[in-house]
């Protein structure tokens, strides 16, 4: 029968939670890609219709507010995992 000493148990759980935290932070990549896409489209849109500049900036700002929060979710989980 295999048995672990308490230090080994502690080490396995700490390792797993640290690896999990590192993987969770990968999700922060998504909003960056999406926001960059929107910004690239906005520049061409402003070139085409300069009089709609205010409405374009407003649309992008509201879009960024909503899409930025997925990254914070992953950060919350990562910090829970590191300190538990």
């Amino acid at each position: 029968m295999i048995q672990f000493t308490p230090e080994v148990v502690e080490a396995i759980i700490t390792t797993a939670s640290l690896i999990g935290a590192g993987v969770a932070v990968i999700a922060g990549m998504g909003p960056g890609i999406g926001m960059g896409l929107a910004a690239g489209k906005a520049t061409t849109a402003v070139r085409r219709q300069p009089e709609a500049r205010g409405a374009i900036i407003t649309t992008m700002l509201l879009g960024q507010i909503i899409s930025g929060s997925t990254g914070i979710y992953s950060l919350v989980i990562a910090i829970f995992l590191i300190f538990s």
Partner: peptide
Amino acid sequence: NIERSLQMSEGKATSFIRNRYF
């Protein structure tokens, strides 16, 4: 950041906003 990115070309604005997000 958005006001600044609108003066750039398309590829430059994409990478600018991505870096600012990070």
